[in-house]
Design a protein around this nucleic acid. Structure first.
Lengths: 144, 144
DNA sequence: CTTCAGCGTTGTATTCTGCAACTGCCCGTG
DNA sequence: CACGGGCAGTTGCAGAATACAACGCTGAAG
């Protein structure tokens, strides 16, 4: 077994390597939907809609970046803005049917790719890997 | 236990979420060294030097992108190019002492952050998580 | 009413990235 | 030996993503 420090270094290195390739890999899988767009749509689906500021906070992006991404996605017809009647500063962002469909299509491509890559894994290993990632990311949510 | 499909979907989602934040997180940790620069330097250290083309292939980046990154890192004095005497097309890229020091400094910051985040984990879980990531990435190396 | 804070947009500059064209070099074939 | 093809790397160019700062609008607190 690796020492604690070796394990941490390995985890760090491998997660970084993955992150480094994720953008290009996502772009190859579905050229029309960048990694950012894809994750934003996913988030909207999971959350059943949310505000632009929430997206910015969650993904550590500037609100201006989100604003432009949102504008592009709206122009494509994938999301719509619903003004909050109580507070006109707030826009609730939601997926349109077209956006839901597009997201499902991209997600299916990704799902297939992941399934292929993980085809050889034992179910127990998959389960544990998923659990570890969840645990890691839940810790990361608060800060760095 | 989760079903195989649930596990795969979770792995996909969580890896993507991590990738989405990695750049910003890395930028906050050491503003002088972008995620790309950091990973390139790390790769050079691990491999004891390699060619620009190898970096491009490994990280799925265009060779022009690598070329520019390399040029910037050379200008900063972090790497040096050594022409292969047998084949003048080839440049062996290597870390300079300054590059090694800079990398160590950034790596230490990252290592601390990871250690903190993983402080609560049992050694066995760390070991398995590291193993899973290695296994996943080694499969990914060839293609998507 | 006035001031302040929160949400979102827009202007501007920087950085990253890919594609295509180009140079220089190596190697195999005729 | 000359030539053509292929590999390594660079550069010109354009597009996208991003951050920072300044602004406008709205709501809330005093």
């Amino acid at each position: 077994m690796l020492s604690r420090d070796q394990s941490v270094v390995t985890i760090q290195r491998e997660l970084t390597a993955f992150a480094r390739r994720a953008r290009a890999a996502a772009a190859r899988m579905h050229p029309e939907l960048s990694l950012v767009s894809f994750t934003l749509l996913s988030h909207l689906e999971d959350q059943q809609g949310c505000r632009a500021t929430d997206l910015a906070a969650y993904y550590m992006l500037d609100k201006s970046t989100i604003s432009r991404q949102i504008a592009a996605l709206e122009k494509l017809g994938f999301i719509e803005r619903i003004s909050d009647p109580d507070d006109h500063r707030i826009q609730l962002l939601q997926l349109t049917p077209a956006g839901t469909a597009k997201l499902a299509e991209a997600a299916e491509l990704r799902r297939q790719a992941f399934h292929e890559r993980l085809a050889d894994w034992a179910p127990q290993d998959l389960d544990r890997f998923a659990e570890y990632l969840l645990r890691y990311n839940s810790l990361a949510e608060g800060g760095s």
